[in-house]
Design a protein around this nucleic acid. Sequence first.
DNA 1: CAGCCGTGGCA
DNA 2: TTGCCAAGGCT
Length: 321
Amino acid sequence: MSAFHAVTGLLFGMGPILHCARCEYVVSISPPELVDWYAQARRDLPWRDPDVTAWQILVSEFMLQQTPVARVAPIWLDWVARWPTPSATAAAGAADVLRAWGKLGYPRRAKRLHECALVIASDHGDVVPDDVEVLLTLPGVGAYTARAVACFAYQKRVPVVDTNVRRVVARAVHGLADAGNPSATRDLADVEALLPENATAATFSAALMELGATVCTARSPKCGICPLSVCAWRAAGYPASNGPARKAQGYAGTDRQVRGRLMDVLRASSTPVERAALDVVWLRDPAQRDRALDSLLVDGLVEQTADGRFALAGEGDDAGA
DNA sequence: CAGCCGTGGCA
DNA sequence: TTGCCAAGGCT
């Protein structure tokens, strides 16, 4: 079986208490319970269709990094229709990829996705790897995305830890209002300990994420409709968050905002633009604007033409299509 | 590891 | 209105 063993007693009459053999906390997430809920409550997201390929799932994961589902869906649909495979994506020009990305944000993700397609097409026979360690070598693929692809595209039994999962585990298992600072090793071990041994592990991971995304949400959790019969947070009386709130990120007035405006101008133009056309997007602080533009050049998102104008990187590099 | 990297919707 | 937050990754 697993690392768990049943102990005597009932928790508030809800069912058997399970203690993790390696940890101290009470295991409070029942796989069958969660999987059954998922079967009837899962959202009908386009990348969950049965005929969606591993590459297309990988594309969705790139887009979903820090961007909400509602904004990703329409872009993803257009994207996979236009570039259905790694090689098709690799053959596209970087500038077209950046334009198709549109305003999803963090355009470095689009560049990494393009680079990822190049590597898969050239080094992996146009097939998305199914091994986590191999996936981790790909540009833009980190601890979350590698396991998400292994799990959702290849049904592998691997812990998939994103912000939703961390929050659900913090509440249901540890009885805390929210997850503490991320700790890759600890977080992976936590979720690994929850995974069922059988073939439902991949579905369980999907369900855990779905619960965090739709029920056990950060703002106003819908505890009234939660399918979990045991929750340490509820059992403890929903204690408030402990530690200091994580520092707000801020946006207005940052280099990020300036970069966004510059990219917006460049995406909109099919020809290189004059320096003056970029200067007007940020008049209050020329030094900051110059710094932002320079960082885009360094990031390889923007290129300067021989005559001194600016354009999205890889403009005109496309192989047709 | 803390800080940085876009954007928009919602409480 | 405004701060918080959203299927993270990289340096």
